[in-house]
Amino acid sequence: MAARTEVRPRPRRRTSRFRDRETWAAYAFLSPWIIGFLLITAGPMLISLVLSFTDYDGLRETQAVGWRNYEQVMSDPKIRTAMFNTLVYAVLSVPGTMILSLWLATMLSKVGRRSAGVFRTLYYLPEVTPKVAVGVLFLMLFNGQVGLVNSALGLVGIDGPQWSTDEAWIKPGLVLMNLWSVGGTVIIYLAALNNVPRDLYEAAELDGVSAWQRFRHVTLPMISGALFFTMIVQTIAALQTFDEAYTAFFGSTASATYSNDAALFYVVYLFQQAFQFLHMGYASAMAWLLFLVIMVITFVQVRLSRRFVYYEGGER
């Protein structure tokens, strides 16, 4: 027994780190995601890249068409309309979501622990509402004549617009509807706010700075990592927006009859091309164009973040 308790020097390992037990365990735990990514995401992505150079329609024999789909993407006026709509939506939606979420999180951080739990649940509930239901709700809440939104505006003397038919108000309406489900972002901001060291506020208070200055010079820098993360995620989500607009304006026979070009977002048009018009090859080319646009925007955001995001222990 005594011999077994002796501490003997471990032989120096010259083998790959893959022979390490923990590494294998880690990969084992990661494997569902890795396999899922390879089969369900990376595989279809590569196939869609190949399909983007074909006339694939899901039904007939496929022919290679070279760059034709990409040339058509560049000259299709509806692509320009859809891309413009999507960018406008993103420009309105991302800051709107971030500002509202931050305001709600700030309010929540000031209420008692027990009440905060209740409010957190309440704010998160719309997040689990199916997007299809939100699309239908949009038409009901934003009905120009009997909708709740215009009724509420009427109480303060504002004659509300025709949200579902006026091209100038369709996108703002959809953005407002999207703000309904900011719960996830609120939770992230709340966690970030709770992690800001109290002593920073105490020091600021001792220096006599105002509440706004505390928010501007203490809170914002300390939660800038969370702000940056949500900005990236929200931007990608906005550029891929589909469910609400599709349900409200394109989904059923009835809604498709009264569709509106102002609600034609990029992914909605992509879906139309793929599944309504059976132009899968063209839709694949559209998907890759969107991928490139998102990649460029994300790259710019990441580069800019170096100037604005504070990482503890890192450079500002």
Binding site: D166, E167, A256, T257, Y258, S259, D261, A262, Q276, F277
Partner: peptide, 21 residues
């Protein structure tokens, strides 16, 4: 042979008229 696209084309056109575009 392009029934869906044909219908979408004329319905979208009327919708552009209706919404004043």
């Amino acid at each position: 042979p392009a029934g869906s696209e044909f219908r979408t084309a004329w319905q979208d056109a009327v919708n552009r008229v209706l919404s004043g575009q």
